[in-house]
Design a protein around this nucleic acid. Structure first.
Lengths: 125, 125
DNA sequence: TTGACATATTCCCACATGGGAATATAATTC
DNA sequence: GAATTATATTCCCATGTGGGAATATGTCAA
């Protein structure tokens, strides 16, 4: 099985940095394709393709106006990413406490393996 | 140019749902590989490979203890994702206000294209 | 040493990728 | 209708993928 398609979900779509740039632009408001092309300086087909991926996962929507196609951000589709990553906040907040925790950890390590591994050991031996 | 390697950064590493599961497990504490294997029920080589990717982007670190390798989450590497996605919070918060905003938007649309597109028009005509 | 256990590595494959280039489609203007 | 503008689509390709299967490496125990 190859890597999941970029169009599978927001996680995959957003892994590509250029698509994040496009979303950053659209966060400021609805934009026609050529606006993105000129602002970011990428070839037009490339922009259209990236927009196509973003549209497929619902991160943007498209509206026609004359020959222009106006793309609008649908930020709500990013919520699952936010929700998931938010559960890890504690790992970079309270930096001082973390430094302390690390020091304690090192102490524990220097006294040999502990705590988190016994599950396996207890079960098997 | 093919898709960026999964080992390029946290965004790419985390696009794979199974790797997110592994991180979720490690959020509870340091774990030996076999613990993950048994808990998630995946083939051991698969687990090792995913851990390898996570290690390469710095999302986990590894410590040896006897024949076991203990993996520990390094959650701080997720911070860039959190920081980026956080800038879009306003798009799903204040839901009532958003509904109102949408109604206004529809009104604007019904009166024809507006506001966000003139940049292009003004420049070119 | 031999065997058992814990984990990593290698080889394989079908597949989707992002970019470049060229071209197609659609709407507007003349 | 023809030219122009705005955007999308198609074709190409080198590359990395995740999973399966088999095997290698490393460590402990008898």
């Amino acid at each position: 099985m190859p890597r999941a398609p970029t169009t599978l979900d927001a996680f995959n779509a957003v892994a590509e940095p250029k698509r994040r740039q496009v979303l950053d632009m659209l966060a400021q408001g609805e934009r026609p394709v050529n606006d993105i092309v000129h602002t970011l300086g990428w070839p037009q087909p490339q922009v259209s393709k990236h927009l196509g991926v973003l549209k497929k996962v619902g991160l943007v929507s498209e509206r026609r106006s004359g020959r222009q196609r106006l793309y609008r951000l649908n930020g709500a589709q990013l919520k699952p990413i936010h929700e998931w990553v938010k559960t890890f906040e504690r790992f970079w907040q309270h930096q001082l406490e973390r430094i302390k925790a690390r020091a304690e950890q090192k102490l524990r390590e220097s006294r040999g393996p502990q705590r988190e591994l016994p599950q396996e050991k207890e079960r098997k031996q």
